[in-house]
């Protein structure tokens, strides 16, 4: 098991390293010249251009620049934002809490709603199942910005239950501010968990070992809890892991709609503004979250399924 884990971690590090190269390279391949952004398009003297190029290492060979960047990044130095003249790391730390809180709130909602309705749909065949399936389809097909606008107009503007925009100040206020964004994201993501929960519980319920349990006179509640749900938790947890990674990257639209200062909105403003140190750092952070989540999902898998542990220790 130790060796398997070590290998997963090495793969994780290689993934992040490879992604970092692509991230670094793609911003330089993108159209537009960083220097003309730095000078805001005003006519500039060759001396100024040379000074800016030197400050941002724009004239060094590509590989050298990449190595410089990745070494600095490793030490927590992502350079300075071009647009805001502040260290990139400060910007990220300023924006991180909103995103973390939003992702946690959303994940809780998505898992509760998804597993609950997926489970109901799995066992209540007929109109209830059909209704939940239809709701999942509609929900999945609704873009987050549409549900955001709907939620704002009904619950924030219309009923006034929640604030219209902004991240809030203290923790209670922050949570209050993030309810509607979390609901908007939940509308987009609960069908992913719900469909998996429905399919896996239904499949597990048809399994032979459930027949054994029924033949022993165990109550349906016991069978659902200890055999159906316990076993379906394995595929469900995988999808929860993927959803977490997807949510971290996918908060951008909702953050923009609710004008929250999260990582997603930071990525969007930095990309559109050619603030390349910020864009690179945020992209690298997201890739790292993805890769680490994958390792965590693997560990979760082993914790839930004894067969995986055995195959790991054999390798």
């Amino acid at each position: 098991m130790g060796r398997f884990l070590a290998r997963r971690i090495i793969i994780c590090v290689l993934t992040v390293a490879g992604a970092s190269f692509v991230i670094f390279a793609s911003l330089y391949l993108a159209p537009g010249d960083p220097i003309s952004f730095l000078t805001a398009g005003r006519p500039s003297s060759p001396e100024l251009r040379a000074a800016l190029a030197a400050q941002y290492h724009l004239d060094d060979p590509f590989l050298h620049r990449y190595l410089q960047w990745i070494t600095d990044a490793f030490q927590g130095n992502f350079g300075e934002s071009i647009a805001r003249r502040r260290p990139v790391l400060d910007l990220i730390f300023a924006n991180l809490p909103t995103t973390i809180l939003l992702v946690i709130m959303t994940l809780i909602l998505v898992v509760v709603v998804g597993v609950l309705f997926g489970g109901i749909a799995a066992f209540r065949r007929g109109p209830i199942d059909d209704g939940i399936m239809a709701a999942m389809t509609v929900s999945l097909a609704t873009p987050a910005f549409v549900s955001s606008i709907f939620l704002i107009s009904v619950f924030a503007v219309g009923l006034g239950w929640f604030p219209v925009f902004g991240p809030g100040t203290d923790i209670g206020d922050r949570i209050h501010h993030l309810v509607l964004p979390a609901v908007a994201l939940t509308i987009a993501w609960w069908p992913v968990i719900g469909e998996t929960a429905r399919a896996s519980m239904r499949e597990e319920h048809e399994r032979e070992h459930v027949e054994t349990a029924r033949s022993r006179g165990l109550t349906p509640q016991h069978i659902v809890r200890r055999h159906v749900f316990r076993n379906a938790a394995i595929p469900i947890s995988t999808v929860i892991g993927l959803s977490f990674a997807g949510l971290v990257a996918g908060t951008a639209i909702v953050e923009s709609a609710f004008q929250l200062n999260g990582l997603g909105s930071l990525l969007i403003t930095s990309v559109t503004g050619r603030d390349f140190p910020v864009a690179q750092a945020v992209a690298l952070l997201l890739v790292t979250v993805f890769a680490v989540t994958n390792v965590v999902v693997d560990l979760l898998y082993a914790a839930l399924d004894p067969r995986v542990q055995t195959s790991w220790s054999r390798k």
Binding site: R207, E208, H209, T212, S215, R216, R226, I234, P306
Partner: peptide, 16 residues
């Protein structure tokens, strides 16, 4: 009553 099935590998819950 009690019942014994054909293939014990699938008639036992693999994760318990």
């Amino acid at each position: 009553m009690a019942m014994i099935f054909q293939d014990p590998r699938v008639h036992l819950n693999p994760v318990r």
